[in-house]
Each structure stands twice: as C-alpha cells, then as structure tokens.
Simulated scan of single mutants.
Amino acid sequence: MQELEKKLNYTFRDPALLSEALSHSSYANEHRAAGLNSNERLEFLGDSVLGFVTAEFLFVQHPDLPEGDLTRIRAALVCEQSLYEVARKLDLGSYLKLGRGEEAGGGRKRTSILADATEAVFAAVYLDGGIGAASALIHRLLLDAEKEEAVEERRRDYKTALQELVQRQAGQELSYRMAGEQGPDHAKTFSAEVLLNGAVVGSGSGHSKKEAEQAAARAALAALGET
C-alpha cells in the first residue's frame, strides 16, 4: 500500500479505503464471511468524480468550444482505454486483490478490471481527502496537455475521413477485412486491412476490431497523402 501511495503521491488517512478500491468482486465473494466489500461502489462514485473534474477542466480550458465538442472530448478522456493506460502506468494490476478464478484467468491484465479499479482509486482519494485531492490526482494522471492531445488524436474518425476521400471519385470501392488476431482472450490484439478496389492500401492493429480498422484507415490516409 505504501508503495502505491508513493506512485499516487497521496498518503491515505484511512488506508482501508485504498484496500477496498483494490478489492475485486471475485475476492470479496470468496471472503464474504469476513464482511469485505468489493470496489464496485467506489467505482460508481469514482466515475462521477472523474466526470465532474474532467468537465470542469474542459469548461475552463476551452471557453469557445460548444457543448457537443466538450462532450466528445470528455468521453475520450475518461474512456476505458484511457483509464486502463493510467492503471498500467501505476502498475495497478500488481496491487489488485482477486479471487482465485479471476487470478487464474489473467484478471490482473484485464482492461475492464484495471479501468474500474482506477475509478475506484479516484473515489477512495476523494472520500479520504476531498475533491481537491482527487482533482489533483486526476489532473496529474489524465488531464495534462500531452494527454489531451493524445486523446484528440485518438478520437479522430479516420474511417469517415477515408470514406469521404474515396467518394470524391465515382466508382471507388472501399472495404475492410480482419487480417488476424493474437494474444489471450483478455488481451487480444487484432490486425485489419483496408482495401481500395481490391488492393490493400493500409493496415493497422488495435485492442479491438474497431480500433484496428481505424488504425488501418489512418495508414491508408497517410499512404494517400492525406495526413
């Protein structure tokens, strides 16, 4: 716990909150007799704390952006993948308390479990130190300028951009196909190719089929001189 507190740059007055934030439901179920709580309630609260802090940040940072753009940027900043990246940065998986089945199934590396635990940690800091402490942590881990630029890049819809480019000329046919997948079920990497009139013009990979297709479309745009 002390090692993780150093990474968080926050010392808990009530260490039990951090312990609960790291307790997966599978662990709590196996220790039901001890009356242990899982991190699900903290995750629920952390989602709201994260949403508020991020909304306030974007409202101040972008005074000219309309509501729709602010909503899209916030969604990208607080998405599961962003939270998973924070968890990896903290090596949060090594601190999780998992049940035997979840442990055997690779739960320490599962994207959804790590993302949920990140939100639970945000809530634990909020309950222990207030909104100021939670905001400072969220800003440091998620809302710095470099991170926002990365999110802006991620939320670009390369498939739509490629489709619009191809449609400038009549008779062009655009299609996608999966080229393969590798890795265990909880951490698969998918590969995709985009074809223009039957010829491969771009390929890419990602943690989902949608992400792989976006990466392939981006590569195609670059090959066609559009990025």
Score class of each variant (00 low, 15 high):
H186K: 01
E153F: 12
A134V: 06
A120D: 05
L18F: 07
S208R: 04
I73H: 13
Q163M: 12
Q61F: 03
G225R: 05
H24C: 06
A220R: 04
V78K: 08
L65G: 00
G106D: 04
H207R: 14
S205K: 15
K7R: 15
I131H: 02
S205Y: 14
N37C: 11
I138S: 00
V166Y: 02
E20I: 13
G93N: 05
A170L: 11
A133V: 01
E3Q: 15
L114S: 02
K89N: 15
H139L: 00
T111E: 12
G132H: 06
E226Q: 09
F44L: 06
E5V: 10
V53A: 02
D14P: 09
E181R: 13
L58P: 09
E149D: 12
A220I: 05
F12A: 12
T160A: 15
M178Q: 11
A192D: 07
R140M: 07
I138Y: 01
A76L: 08
E226V: 10
S48F: 08
N29S: 07
S203M: 10
N197S: 04
D128I: 06
Y27E: 00
R108N: 02
H186T: 01
R108E: 04
A87M: 08
L50D: 06
L50E: 05
L114R: 03
I138P: 04
L65C: 01
F12Y: 13
P66Q: 03
D116W: 01
Q169T: 15
L96C: 07
S38F: 04
H207D: 12
L22A: 01
L70M: 13
G171K: 09
G180V: 03
E102L: 10
L96D: 02
L195R: 02
R108L: 02
E56V: 10
Y10S: 09
V60M: 07
L174V: 02
H207P: 13
A120C: 05
S135P: 04
E173A: 10
A134C: 01
E119A: 07
G202Y: 12
V194W: 03
E193N: 05
F122K: 03
E3W: 09
M1E: 15
H186N: 06
T160W: 13
G206S: 06
A136C: 00
P66S: 00
G204D: 08
S203V: 12
E152G: 14
G198H: 01
S203K: 13
T189K: 14
F59I: 10
P15L: 05
L196K: 04
E102A: 13
E3K: 14
K97W: 09
L18S: 06
T54F: 07
A187L: 14
E153P: 06
